[in-house]
Design a protein around this nucleic acid. Structure first.
Lengths: 329, 329
DNA sequence: CTGAAAGCGCTAACAC
DNA sequence: GTGTTAGCGCTTTCAG
């Protein structure tokens, strides 16, 4: 790969001039510009990323953390964020936390290394005080997560209201024994969702039993396991707010195999409105989330901080969700 | 963020010495090493990625192309590849082609820019001659794809044999009218798969009708559409090799809704052995692919080229697949 | 309009 | 053991 110096030498100009045509500066004679452009094309020259950005002290790449990439929700989130970033001329480095604090911190240190210009947290593993110091190195933003003390922009949706309306729907369907699932990361977002769940229950003078609350709910397989636990309970819930369509699908499958009638014996409500909701039997009632919009807004917000060079401040953008009723409730 | 110079100044040593302790070189007095380490920790110093790698002329990052990230197969592939690369101290930049030649070339140019050290193609959109020149800038490797002329390592599995055994299974189940689906990218890998399909048919003296071959088969929704097309046919196939579990799930759902008996009226075989195979009713017969292994081997192979600095050469590693029989056939 | 020179932050000969 | 110096490839003053 030729360097800018070689181009300059061949064109018998200084590298300054080459740099100027590369960056579309004015004040270069048409003649030289043309010649330089020709040689650039001929030698198939392309400027060195590392050198260019070392000089500019920025990288035009963002990092995005997710628990794992092979989950439909996060797959779509990544897709949305990558597209939007790409259109603005930024690249996205995907970092999987696998629910480990350590992996999250390793990503944060990319910010210190100047390897990235900003971080979008699609998950939050560490306590906020652990993350906060990294703000000194670049903007950080929470997407699809929530934290009460985080002094950064939060792009999310109203998890409380989503939890509330899901459970309210189950209650209206006549259920009194309602369970809840959350994934391994007990995030504040899921805490909010649970508060909504509890509010709906208490409004109807209902109680939860502790054994109706299941954790580790993320995949179809987790759904299988949760069903097994539920099935072994003496007093079983008759409805479950699973917080995740994959989990819902897994539970439904096992329930049907064990001669439960869904939704009569066990009503199930998912979360995310993934396509899988439409292929199970019965189909899955769920909460629809504007994933792409979540991604777009996150990118726009973080880029505005990066490009203005302002200090991030706490602000919260909540996107609307909707209840989508199908056969499982 | 402090630089190496500041550390040096504070410790009253040259930056060479600081660099030496940073890189664990010998020949630094214990005393100075200790002092330097202390100051580094105190100032929370961390070396600048851009500067370090500009100097070293490498980036320790790989690019991986996939059609789109929000598809279970590619999600798992990304996960496997990222993990393996990460363990070896490399980062991976995910690039989505969305089946566009242009996007693929944009990724290839990262190699020219020295923004990445190597490329793993998880999809192949352009013709091989278009890609080949980029070999001058770094190693390229095909993963989960196949191309007869590509002079690079190919980590794949025997698509021909997979197609053959899938269709053979359908024939053994008594089917004579068997259809085939492929996704929008008519890759050579899928070509191989189709050859296996055709071989099995011809061995049994069976014919395909052109209208039994469906393209655009990638998602659950595509499965819905394909079912609709099939349903409108005068002469319908009684079995379908869908090439994809999501598509299989979509077709099965619509078929059941339209009072087909699966597998009696329409047998369906998927591809990939995703968890979704286990939650549909009926469950899906499929071909199991060693996705993680595919990723591991790809990373190991490309890193060996990057680190040895050798020219890549054609070599093919084929991993085994297996037929997993469930209720849909 | 154009070029010389400085410098982004780091590593590695090479000398001492 | 340690420091001086050059240079990775680029952009940007500043002077002409």
């Amino acid at each position: 790969m030729p360097t800018i110096d070689e181009i300059a030498k061949i064109c018998k100009v200084s590298k300054t001039t080459v740099s100027r045509v590369l960056n579309n500066h004015p004040y270069v004679s048409e003649e030289k510009r043309k010649k330089i452009l020709d040689v650039i094309k001929e030698l198939d020259y392309s400027p060195n990323y590392l050198a260019k950005h070392l000089r500019a002290r920025k990288t035009r790449t963002l990092a995005l953390s997710v628990p794992t990439v092979d989950h439909p929700f996060f797959g779509q989130l990544i897709k949305g964020i990558s597209n939007e970033a790409f259109q603005k001329g930024y690249k996205v480095l995907i970092c999987q936390t696998f629910y480990k604090k350590k992996n999250e911190l390793e990503m944060m240190s990319l910010l210190k290394n100047k390897e990235i210009d900003g971080v979008i947290l699609g998950a939050l593993e560490n306590e906020w005080p652990t993350i906060e110091p990294y703000l000194a190195y670049g903007p950080i933003l929470l997407c699809n997560e929530y934290h009460e003390n985080a002094s950064i922009p939060i792009i999310c949706y109203d998890e409380f209201e989503a939890g509330y309306k899901a459970v309210k729907h189950l209650i209206e369907k006549g259920h009194q024994k309602i369970g809840f699932c959350f994934d391994t990361s007990y995030s504040q977002a899921q805490g909010q969702r649970m508060k909504g769940f509890l509010k709906a229950l208490s409004e109807a003078n209902l109680q939860v039993k502790e054994e109706w609350i299941f954790d580790g709910a993320f995949t179809i397989k987790d759904g299988f396991n949760i069903f097994n636990k539920l099935h072994n309970l003496n007093e079983k819930p008759t409805a479950l707010f699973t917080g995740n369509d994959q989990v819902a699908a897994g539970i439904i499958k096992k329930a049907i195999l064990n001669d439960y009638k869904v939704p009569e014996d066990l009503a199930i409500i998912g979360y995310d409105n993934q396509l899988i909701c439409q292929v199970t039997a019965p189909t899955i009632t769920t909460i629809g989330i504007p994933i792409i919009e979540l991604g777009n807004q996150s990118v726009q917000k973080i880029l505005s901080y990066i490009e203005q060079g302002e200090e991030v401040k706490r602000e919260m953008i909540q996107l609307p969700t909707k209840l989508i009723v199908r056969e499982s409730t």
